[in-house]
Design a protein around this nucleic acid. Sequence first.
DNA 1: CGTTATGTTTCACT
DNA 2: CAGTGAAACATAAC
Length: 261
Amino acid sequence: MPELPEVEGYKVYIDNTSLHKRITAFECRDVRLLKASLADFEKHLINQELTETQRIGKYLFIKTSGQKILVIHFGMTGRPNYYKEKEDRPKFGHIVLTFENGFHFAFENKRKFGWWDLTDSIADYKVARNLSDDARDLTLEDFKASLRKRKTFIKAVVMDQSVAAGVGNWMADDILYQSKIHPEQKVQDLSEKDIETIFKAMRHVIEVAIENDAHHPDFPEEFLIHNRKEGATCFHTGTEIQKIKVGGRSTYFSPGWQILK
DNA sequence: CGTTATGTTTCACT
DNA sequence: CAGTGAAACATAAC
């Protein structure tokens, strides 16, 4: 599920459950989820504590009392789960930390597109991954500068993590819906004003989503998310929502509302 | 059985 | 080198 607002929720969850407790065990069922060696994870996590979290886009960095910073990416189906009893380990809890208080921190990851890594520097990691500033912190000027270099569909660009870190598929659809911009609009044909509209919509979608703990049913009724399925009715026009593929991803939009220039 | 899923990485091409 | 688009990755659920 996780895009920026969901990961922000996971960050708060981890802050409230899993910091400042000595780690006594590290277990991983499938080493394909680890980008560093199992030995390194054990070495750098066991007997250390998680001390502080920092989120950039969909990436969560967790500082430790040791040398390394833990990097978590949730993929498409990841989420954290803090629990007490061993038998409560979630079905897809493929990586589990155990703390000295006996509680466990599971990294649930049904589809195994998520992963853990270790790093020495958040700044270096951000550069190495070609990650932009977090979409909440990004300036309009930087956003404009990124768009000037691009010549493809706006939807693909808005979702590009090197443009605005944290925007994913559902948010990109909602941002463009609220901006009245067609997802297949070529970026070079957008006016300055269009770009500012998109930027503001991005901020709005993110803040509303975070305020509502990323719980879609609580979002305002004009959000596309409520009708983000083929054949659903557009809140504004009463016409049908259409599904197409853009940038390899399923894209939902209202052809009567988001007119191609 | 085929299709789809809220993501990233890799690779070939321009 | 930089931007683009397609494919690959792994797996559950409908």
